[in-house]
Simulated scan of single mutants.
Amino acid sequence: MGKSAVMSTIASAPESWPWPPIVRASVGWHLLAVGAAVFVPGAAPWAIGAIVLNHVLITAAGLTPRSSLLGPNVTRLPKAAADRREIALTIDDGPDPEVTPRVLDLLDAHGQRATFFCIADCVLAHPALAREIVARGHSIQNHTAQHRHNFSFLGPRGFAAEISRAQQVLEETTGQRPSCFRAPAGLRNPFLAPVLHRLGLLLVSWTRRGFDTRERDAATVLARLTRGLAAGDILLLHDGHAARTAAGRPVVLEVLPPLLARIRADGLRAVTLPEALAA
């Protein structure tokens, strides 16, 4: 199936959301606990404990970026892409006027493609740079409007406002409507999945990450990304909010040259997420 057909299928997805088993079980658990508290003498403390335990489980699922308990979550490329020896290099939190142009030059020099999960407010601040990302063969996807630190605490309306606004800004700026979404830090709650479903967006996390927003040693970041590197992996780096080496250089710029060389040496090819997910 071609990319356009896949996008059409996603866009025409039904409005109703098939709630995941853990969410349906949570509703039943709450009803059972309330019923026990009301009708069973002395059961109230146990019922409260059961509800608290349930909330802890749901919260833990939302705080685990690679979890699929709260809804679909792409953590690896599909088998067809892995069979083609493809990986996805994803770069978050930009565009950044200092770092992103040099990232683009490095990608061009090695003949590889990347997916940039961009913050809409940064795109508004640097629209020409966003258009250059697309013009040079890369993909821009949705990383919310503002990258709010309290994003995982939002409800349905808050999620819809942040994500819809980002969709509009990114499409109007680049001419391409995002099909993938990544939450800030990968954190979320049960209300996110139905909003993404309604907007025709796929939640994408990663296979491995370098923690390059806080790790200043490029060798450590590189080791995290390349340890067990294999076809189908989704790698995470940052052009925005990038940590700096002791010499003051953005870590991503130190990591990319040896990482891209390793990708080529292993017979792998970095492609955009829409390309990898289209089949």
Rank of each mutant, 00 (worst) to 15 (best):
E171D: 15
A276V: 02
T100F: 10
G111W: 10
I119Q: 02
P127N: 13
R249L: 05
L235Y: 01
V34Y: 11
L268G: 06
T64N: 06
A125H: 10
D96Q: 07
P101T: 14
V252D: 00
A243C: 05
D92R: 04
W46M: 13
A25D: 15
L170T: 09
E275F: 11
K3G: 12
E98D: 15
G28H: 13
S16H: 14
T173G: 02
T220L: 02
E215W: 09
E98S: 14
I119S: 02
L192Y: 00
Q112L: 11
C122M: 14
F181G: 00
E162N: 09
S164G: 15
P127Q: 10
A44E: 08
N189A: 11
A261I: 07
C118H: 04
A231P: 01
Q167P: 13
V38D: 10
L202F: 13
F117I: 04
I119N: 01
L199M: 07
I87D: 00
G232W: 02
L236Q: 08
W17T: 13
V251K: 02
R157M: 12
A82Q: 06
T9E: 09
R84I: 11
L236H: 08
H241K: 12
V255K: 01
I119C: 04
T213I: 12
V52W: 06
H197N: 09
L69E: 05
A43Q: 08
T245S: 01
H30A: 14
L196W: 08
P127D: 10
V134G: 08
D83L: 12
G248R: 05
A270C: 08
V40N: 05
G28N: 11
A61Q: 08
D266W: 09
P72K: 10
P18K: 09
V271I: 07
V251L: 03
R264T: 15
A25G: 15
I10K: 13
L256C: 06
Q167R: 11
A125V: 12
A270I: 06
R182S: 01
Q168P: 10
D96K: 04
